[in-house]
Design a protein around this nucleic acid. Structure first.
Length: 588
DNA sequence: GCCGTTTTCGGCCCGACTGTTTTCAGTCG
């Protein structure tokens, strides 16, 4: 059972416990464990096989360790199956509708036998929800609207799809007179691969400016529906289904608000804990003296002297912490390092010296070799690898040995015309079904860089797929394993593969793994890049560009790399050319 | 259920909003 499945079982169990009315701290314990397991770079299954002590995993104690072992052994969680006899799993689905928490979902199920979103909708339309405690006309209408939103937007949107929509919106708000600052917070700022909604924060010079910013926001052309609009807070839904919230505030508390709304929630909880340990109190308004517990009846917001609030930097500083980059704020151990002053210096776009994965019109790219080359020079790269497809991908016009020879004649000319950059002659070679490669050994040896990829036979069993890829990366001429899981965000799960085993093989053979920066892929995921880093692998951030414009997709790859704490030392294409050449030569 | 520079019990992040209340529970971020 994969870590993701284990986490989902724990999460589902927590849902049912919550509906049952269990102790909320117990529920939180299960949710914390679920999140930790989901983020864990090591496979729990492998840990169990090795006889490791699972209670060494943070948030996992004796009880949850036993449950994990049971799930690994039997493929199911007995307590979950048992509880789902009592409470239908559909009730947890009802809980996913905004406005329906555990208490209301439970009441709806007990009173009205509602155990699915469909049932909930039917009951709301028939006006039957009024029978529930605390349910009036208004709430019934709200729930109906929220069911619609739930159906429309069950899945989070890809960050690469959202960027082109949000950038102009932010620009429009920044252009409003009296808008002193407009920033995006939330998971968008943390650069998560998918985003559920957008949080915008703005500083207005005065009340008139605040009103103008709000007016510009709710009147923005892409707005489909205004969900709510007040003096300090407004909310809209854009035409693509994305919900966007705007908060307008004074400069005084902007840092505290930015910190709070950037999250993650887990990072915030951990930060507040640190504040309490220091006799301080952190809220979205600022960092205050006192823990807020002593002032009987006094609002924590007003109790205690303000210590810091204008900038995130000063809040971290007063907490005795280094500034934590937004991409790292996931409570994955960053605060312990920040306390010791040992946070890594994350890789940036400026650190990159080249792009090692791109296509041209020789296969399925839209730009010529010369155009791609000039574009790479414009982007300040010292080197680039041209890596068209191999012949197995007939639909892309992949190259066989003879066509590759002709391509090289053109490369000779283009290289002579563009002395500003070093061209690495490469190919993205298909891994065939049996793990052999789609190019002759003779040509594999002649290439400067060999990328290998799976583009077919996604349905192989875990064992077959793993063995196939291990065989491929064990070929002495292979340098980079591309998009190692084959996933397409929001469209296709990756194929079944034991990444630990594949990473071991890459390590043994001097092969780097790719972080494919395409907004559709972002493969490896942040968690898997962390696993690769911990395994000591080099990571190549490649755009897989099929056009000049797609070369700019590199930023998304950088974002993902930063979420995995990569520094320039970890990234192959952030290394100087001679070092890259040594890596490609594998000491030969 | 987890956790421990207040270690094996007694805590566990915080504030706002909403609809429905007449003092608040539930939900959300």
């Amino acid at each position: 059972m994969s870590n993701a499945e284990l986490a989902r079982h724990l999460e589902l169990f927590a849902d049912l416990l919550e509906i049952e009315g269990e102790n909320r701290f117990k529920i939180r314990a299960y949710r914390n464990a679920a999140r930790t397991i989901y983020d864990l770079p090591e496979q729990v299954e492998a840990m169990v096989a090795d006889g490791a002590d699972l209670t060494q995993i943070p948030s996992v104690g004796k009880e949850i360790a036993e449950k994990l072992e049971a799930m690994v052994a039997t493929g199911e969680l007995p307590q979950l199956s048992e509880l789902s006899q009592k409470i239908p799993l559909g009730v947890t689905e009802v809980m996913r509708v905004k406005g329906m928490g555990p208490k209301l979902a439970e009441a709806a199920w007990r009173e009205l036998a509602i155990d699915s979103v469909d049932e909930l909708e039917r009951a709301a339309k028939a006006g039957k929800l009024g029978a529930l405690p605390g349910f009036g006309e208004k709430r019934q209408a709200t729930i109906l609207k929220n069911i619609e939103a739930y159906r429309k937007n069950v899945e989070r949107l890809r960050i690469g799809d959202i960027d082109p929509v949000i950038a102009p919106l932010v620009a429009a708000l920044r252009a409003v007179e009296g808008a002193e600052r407009v920033e995006v917070a939330g998971s968008y700022r943390r650069r998560r691969e998918t985003v559920g909604d957008i949080d915008l924060l703005a500083i207005a010079a005065d009340d008139a400016a605040a009103a103008a910013i709000t007016a510009a926001f709710v009147g923005y052309p892409e707005v489909d529906e205004v969900l709510g609009s007040g003096d300090t807070r407004s909310s809209v839904r854009l035409r693509n289904g994305l919900e966007v919230d705007l908060r307008v505030m004074e400069a005084e508390s902007f840092g505290a608000a930015l910190l709070y709304f950037t999250g993650s929630k887990a990072h915030n909880v951990a930060l507040r804990q640190i504040a309490l340990e220091r006799g301080l109190h952190l809220t979205e308004y600022g960092l205050f003296e006192g823990t807020g517990a002593e002032g009987e009846g006094a609002s924590p917001k007003s109790s205690g002297k303000l210590v810091a609030s204008r900038t995130e930097e000063e809040i971290y500083e007063k907490l005795g912490l280094q500034y934590v980059e937004p991409e790292m704020r996931e409570d994955r151990g960053e605060l312990a390092l920040a306390a010791k002053g040992q946070l890594p210096t994350l890789v940036t776009l400026a650190d990159l010296r080249g792009d090692l994965h791109m296509h041209s019109t020789w296969s399925d790219g839209k730009a010529s070799v010369a155009e791609m080359m000039r574009a790479c020079i414009e982007r300040g790269y010292e080197y680039m690898a041209l890596t068209d497809h191999s012949k197995a991908l007939a639909m892309t016009g992949g190259l066989d040995e003879e066509k590759l020879a002709r391509q090289w004649e053109e490369l000779d000319r283009v290289v002579a015309e563009n002395p500003g950059i070093t061209l690495l002659r490469g190919m993205e070679v298909d891994i065939l079904k049996d793990g052999s490669l789609d190019l002759s050994d003779e040509w594999l040896e002649r290439l400067d860089i060999v990328l290998v990829s799976v583009h077919s036979h996604f349905g192989l069993s875990l064992e077959e797929q793993t063995a196939r890829i291990v065989k491929a990366v064990s070929h002495p001429e292979v340098n980079v394993l591309c998009h190692p899981t084959g996933r397409i965000l929001g469209a296709r799960e990756g194929y079944a593969v034991d990444l630990q085993e594949v990473f071991d093989a890459c390590h043994a053979n001097g092969v780097a793994v790719e972080l494919n920066a395409s907004y559709m892929r972002l493969d490896l995921s942040d968690v898997n890049v962390i696993a690769a880093r911990k395994r000591g692998l080099m990571v190549s951030i490649g755009t897989d560009a099929h056009s000049v414009k797609e070369l700019d997709g590199m930023q998304l790859g950088i974002d993902q790399a930063r979420r995995a704490w990569l520094t320039p030392e970890h990234v192959l294409n952030a290394r100087p050319l001679d070092e890259v050449r040594r890596f490609l030569a594998k000491g030969r």
